[in-house]
C-alpha cells in the first residue's frame, strides 16, 4: 500500500481471509466487480448498490473555457461524467467519523 489507501489487492486479501476464496478466485472476483460496474456505466446505465450508493451519469453540454496561461478562449466540449451519490447507510456511518487530521 502506497500511502495507506486500500487497494484491489487488499480487497482480494479480505475475500481470501473472510470467505476462504483462493487467491486467484479472490483476485478475479475483485477485477470483475469493478469491471462490471464500469461496463454498465459506459453503456449509459446507472448502478445502484443499496446501502453503499449510486453511480450516476451526467451529460454536460459544451461550455466556453479559457487557457489559464494564455487567456485564449477554447470551448470545453460536451462530455459525460460519472458521479457518486452515497446511500443513507454509508453517509450515516461516515458522518460519525471524527478525523484526527483536519
Amino acid at each position: 500500500m502506497s500511502d495507506g489507501a486500500l487497494t484491489k489487492a487488499d480487497l482480494a486479501e479480505k475475500l481470501y481471509e473472510d470467505l476462504g476464496l483462493n487467491k486467484r478466485e479472490a483476485k478475479e472476483l475483485v477485477e470483475l466487480f469493478f469491471e462490471e460496474i464500469r461496463h454498465a456505466l459506459e453503456n449509459n446505465e446507472q448502478v445502484k448498490l443499496s446501502g453503499f450508493g449510486n453511480f450516476e451519469l451526467r451529460d454536460k453540454s459544451q461550455r466556453p473555457g479559457r487557457n489559464p496561461k494564455t487567456g485564449e478562449e477554447i470551448p470545453i466540449s460536451a462530455r459525460r461524467v460519472v458521479t457518486f451519490r452515497p446511500g443513507q447507510k454509508l453517509k450515516a456511518r461516515v458522518e460519525a467519523y471524527v478525523g484526527t487530521e483536519s
Binding site: T7, F34, R38, L90, R93
Partner: peptide, 12 residues
C-alpha cells in the same frame, strides 16, 4: 471509509 481511510482502485 467510516474509519477515515481512502480507497484507490486504479482505472476505476
Amino acid at each position: 471509509l467510516a474509519s477515515g481511510e481512502r480507497i484507490e482502485i486504479r482505472g476505476f
